[in-house]
Design a protein around this nucleic acid. Structure first.
Length: 342
DNA sequence: AAATGAACCAACCGCATCGAT
DNA sequence: GATCGATGCGGTTGGTTCATT
């Protein structure tokens, strides 16, 4: 499609850092008239900038409801959790951090959080411990290895389902917002309801469900073979039914939640070394496959997922009075708003 | 004090998406 | 359904500041 660049390379258009005078002009204009059409704004406001540049300056810097300065531990945790679920969808993440811009969150992730995770041996893309992480993965055999494989499968399935769930919720949110004004946009909600294919996923909704079933089978198989298998058929049965997303995880080393919920809370700069130790300790424990430890970790994982889902839920329910709290917490109701579209 | 490298962040660029025609 | 224009998003760049040698 022959499309002209959104900001034609007009001679005389200024680029680079904004001056206080330009900020003032932009602020004054938007204060008086609103931004309206960004493309025509610069001329009306007397600015030699392209509309895109004006929009960026406004949304990332001049908007009055922007909070600047250091990110709190709470905000850090939120970013990490949401990034684990949503990937690099900064605008979606930013909707859960009022007063922070997507650009700011993205910068903070790239300059701080990503490095911190990497330093701890956690892959910042997958949020799982890396294969080459110091204390962990490699040295298992026999039943333990099979257990880990089953656990990993389970982990992958749960990971996918929780992420898909969050995406579905975001799609619902968008839909509900749209319903409040213009007619509903079909695309995201439709995808969520029918195929649930996701831009950040290699799995479809049904594939995730199949993963649960496969993980359940593997675990049952393992349970029959030896004590290393600690995943209960009950938990897998429920998971396979695709109702309980925030159930137990099999493998502490493969479960990003354990660290993201707890460790990262206190690993901001000063506590970095300690966090790494905790990471190593947890990985070692997982390696040993100790049941008691496992139960404790399961509890933490449950808490982790609850916190994420609660976070998504709360923003969901606060943005929509038409949904009951039951509707947004009951897994069976989870996809109804999107499904109702069809 | 100067040089160098790392960290930070505002802004740009190109592509994707959406709505209008 | 095809096309076009406007806007939004995410990746990247480049300038500035800070820390270290």
């Amino acid at each position: 499609m022959g499309r002209s660049p959104c900001c034609e390379k007009e001679a005389g258009l200024k680029k680079g850092p904004w001056t206080p005078e330009e900020d003032q002009k932009l602020l004054a204009f938007i204060d008086q008239h609103g931004h309206g059409c960004w493309r025509s704004l610069p001329a009306k406001a007397g600015l030699r900038r392209c509309g895109k540049s004006c929009r960026l300056r406004w949304t990332n810097y001049l908007r009055p409801d922007i909070k600047r300065g250091k990110f709190t531990v709470q905000e850090e945790q939120t970013i990490i959790q949401l990034h684990a679920l949503l990937g690099n969808r900064w605008s979606a993440i930013a909707t859960h951090l009022p007063k922070r811009t997507d650009n700011e969150i993205k910068n903070y992730w790239n300059t701080h959080l990503k490095k911190r995770l990497a330093k701890m041996g956690i892959d910042p893309v997958t949020h799982k411990p890396r294969a080459d992480a110091p204390a962990g993965a490699a040295s298992s055999s026999g039943g333990a290895a099979r257990y880990r494989a089953a656990a990993h499968l389970s982990h992958t399935a749960q990971w996918e389902s929780a992420r898909l769930e969050a995406e579905a919720r975001l799609a619902c949110e968008a839909k509900l917002r749209a319903l409040a004004s213009p007619p509903p946009p079909p695309a995201p909600a439709a995808a969520a309801a029918s195929g649930l294919e996701s831009p950040t996923s290699t799995l479809s909704f049904s594939e995730s469900a199949q993963l649960f079933a496969a993980a359940g089978a593997a675990a049952s198989d393992d349970a029959a073979r030896g004590p290393a298998a600690v995943l209960t058929p009950r938990s897998y049965g429920e998971a396979a039914a695709f109702g309980e997303h925030h159930r137990l995880w099999g493998d502490a080393a493969a479960a990003p939640g354990l660290f993201l919920a707890g460790v990262l809370l206190d690993c901001s700069a000063a506590a970095g070394a300690e966090a790494e130790q905790r990471f190593a300790a947890a990985s070692t424990a997982a390696e040993a496959g100790v049941g008691e430890q496992q139960e404790q970790e399961d509890e933490e994982d449950k808490g982790y997922w609850s916190s994420i889902l609660n976070m998504v839920n709360s923003s969901m329910s606060s943005s929509s009075s038409s949904l009951t709290s039951e509707a947004v917490t009951d897994p069976a109701m989870m996809y109804l708003p999107a499904a109702a579209e069809f």
